[in-house]
Design a binder for these strands. Structure first.
Lengths: 127, 127
DNA sequence: ACAACTTATATGACGCGTCATTGAATGACA
DNA sequence: TGTCATTCAATGACGCGTCATATAAGTTGT
């Protein structure tokens, strides 16, 4: 009854799910344990850290991640409260926000990134 | 500063995340809209439907999905309350549960699976 | 048969993401 | 300039998953 094509699709999907869950879980636990931040928090830090050149609006970041606008807003809020990021409203358009790493944020990101990359290497290695 | 190797890893990871979120989101919305069940509910139905031959303990299912034992338990609970699945405690070991699709569950799964496969095909196609 | 340990599932507190909505600022256009 | 629509971000209600436990059943060793 089950078409072999479909079966292959399902297996491909399960494989994606499995690596996603395993990897995300490992990242989550390690970052939480060593740096007291969640994975999504780190990912925002990581995105902001990449944009050293250009000022960095929330909207722009939203386009680089599958996160919801709402999720972004809350993550940024947590990062702000944790003192890792600062929000500056922009003069041109007072609806927009610019994000910037604080010194603490930059320092934490530098260390956490090492761990992050290492875990990705472990989990995504195609052996 | 950023090693190109690392950069590639990060991109690989983001790509996985993106396809995971997009696909899961699409599945979630479609299944919810057309069949009033969540993605995880469907996935359990799907697993149980596969095991027609052998009686199917929760424990076994747990090994085929990245879901937590706790998550499984709650999903199965919802499916039971929705009348799509039934739980029979096993005589040999009264800690274990056997799961079985109800007629309603089997019918819903048959229809939903078509939608599910179609969406996987759309989203996972390597164009 | 009794303790101590292990295994299978359920449950409660909690955190996070999502949806829908709100508030505020901007744009478009008559 | 006034009105209406649009855009950016924040918020509250809600659902689901996770962790740490609880409950119950089976296992082992003496």
């Amino acid at each position: 009854m089950a078409k072999p094509q479909d079966q292959q699709l399902v297996e491909q999907w399960r494989s994606i799910q499995t690596t996603y869950f395993h990897t995300a879980g490992a990242l989550e636990r390690a970052l939480e344990a060593k740096f007291s931040i969640g994975l999504t928090e780190f990912e925002i830090l990581d995105l902001v850290a990449e944009n050293t050149d250009e000022a960095c609006r929330m909207k722009q970041l939203g386009e680089r991640t599958p996160m919801t606008q709402s999720a972004m807003s809350k993550v940024v809020d947590r990062l702000d409260k944790a003192g890792l990021i600062s929000r500056h409203s922009c003069e041109d358009d007072r609806r927009s926000l610019f994000l910037e790493l604080t010194d603490a944020g930059r320092a934490l990101h530098r260390e956490a990134a090492v761990e992050h990359r290492a875990l990705l290497r472990e989990n995504l290695a195609k052996d």
